[in-house]
Amino acid sequence: MTKFFKRWIVFAGLVVVWQIATVLADDPFFPPPTEIAEAARELWLSGPPDQLFLTDIVFEHLIPSVSRLMGGWAIAAAIGISLGVALGRSRTALEFAGPLLTFMRSIPPPALVPVFLLLFNVGTSMQLATIVFGVLWPILLNTIDGARSVDTLKYETSAVFRVPKWQWVLGVVLPSAAPKIFAGLRVSLSLSLVLMVVSELVGTDNGIGSQLLVAQREFDFPNMWAGIVLLGVIGYALNTVLLAVEHRVLGWQPKQEHSKPVQLATAGD
């Protein structure tokens, strides 16, 4: 309890300072935190009791947004991990694909939004495409790197005991690569939040991003701030959940290397 208290006391102090400063300054651009909190409550938590007090906005905008984010991320993870294992274990395939991958991942994903807009029209598939294309690379490149560096002796052990192919891939390659894969998944998760917002800011009528645009048009600053804070909370929550999962899955590691900052792998070297 005291640890928790200590940890958040500076934070709480800063919020109080911000509150006082904004009240004193009385600047419409910077509404006080209480006003932002009130706006957030009004926006999302003032619904009828049978909806758990959640407003329709939650169901129409928040949940679709988060679903797209998670969906896109999950699709990218599925593609990235399976393709990454295949490429990581085949030198030939990697040599063919390496330069192409390096170039593709260098493209800033938002630059492709117009392409996806045209190919898929405005809507969920275009947003998913943007997210998947953008967040695929960290997962793919990290998986390739992890799968490539499976210990030779573990290969020899598996070969000598004639373990079947599925056991080699699922039981040796994947666990060996797991720490790297998780690092990739973490980068991708925060990137998918960014791309979700970008894809929703390109003129859609649904999602948290579009709500931000609405607030901007109406010069409703408390609502804009509430939206921004909400995105931060979502990002924080998703990251915390992923870290917990990672902690469980990689619990076998002798040294916890979770504190390491994210390192991105590069193809080809």
């Binding site: 925060s190 939040l193 607030a215 804009m224 939206g227 921004i228 995105l231 931060g232 909370v233 990002g235």
Partner: peptide, 9 residues
Amino acid sequence: PIPSVAMIP
């Protein structure tokens, strides 16, 4: 975790 693009508007 606040995505910078969210602050565009």
